[in-house]
């Protein structure tokens, strides 16, 4: 999934001939990797408005927050547990930022007023929270860190793309969120580097 996120970043940067190698280096050696559930569903058409995007991002943040919180049941590694709890808090603060953005777009209504059937079902990367938790249940800490890195890379990519659609405050908010996801990415990568 990291390689898919990378391919998507390259495609966005104007690369036209890109392929992501399925299964990565493990597949190369002939072994089959137990890959995480795949992303692949569309939420909106082309005409997504800023307030819809704020809701969409809020929803994914909520899903990620739940995933990170519930990982606590599966993880034995104390450093990883602490990192994921801290990321869960960060996602909560992102939700607040997005709720404020939504308020300014929608002329004062609260994000909670918006009916959201998908609330907390999907997370960053477009994958389902319950499937991800199921996948994570018997994985070791490095596999879970790798997975989280790919989610955060997707979120980073998403906010860069959202930011490009707007100007002014919305642009600033999305690029700020993007910067934060990038920091999450670095923290996860740092821990993975240590645990490999």
């Amino acid at each position: 999934m990291r390689s898919r996120a990378a391919a998507s970043i390259l495609s966005d940067a104007g690369f036209t001939n890109i392929a992501s190698m399925q299964g990565g280096i493990r597949a190369w050696e002939g072994l089959v990797a137990a890959g995480p559930p795949e992303a692949g569903m569309a939420f909106f058409g082309d005409a997504a408005k800023p307030d819809e995007l704020a809701v969409f991002a809020w929803m994914l943040e909520e899903g990620s927050r739940q995933f990170y919180m519930r990982l606590d049941d599966y993880l034995k590694d104390e450093e990883a547990r602490q990192l994921f709890q801290s990321l869960a808090k960060a996602e909560e603060s992102h939700e607040k930022t997005l709720a404020e953005l939504y308020k300014s777009f929608s002329g004062g209504s609260a994000i909670g007023d918006k009916p959201m059937t998908e609330k907390g079902e999907f997370m960053e990367g477009g994958v389902r929270v319950d499937e991800s938790l199921l996948w994570a249940r018997d994985k070791d800490v490095t596999a879970i860190l790798e997975y989280a890195i790919s989610l955060e890379a997707n979120a980073y990519d998403l906010y860069i793309k959202m930011g490009r659609r707007f100007e002014g405050d919305a642009q600033k908010v999305f690029s700020l969120l993007g910067d934060e996801e990038k920091k999450h990415l670095e923290r996860l990568a740092g821990l993975l580097e240590k645990k490999v």
Partner: peptide, 20 residues
Amino acid sequence: MALLDYFKPVVSMTAEEARE
């Protein structure tokens, strides 16, 4: 299109295809 791009299928290659 940017948001749809988020979920767009990324072209993938099997390790065998990449080797070829």
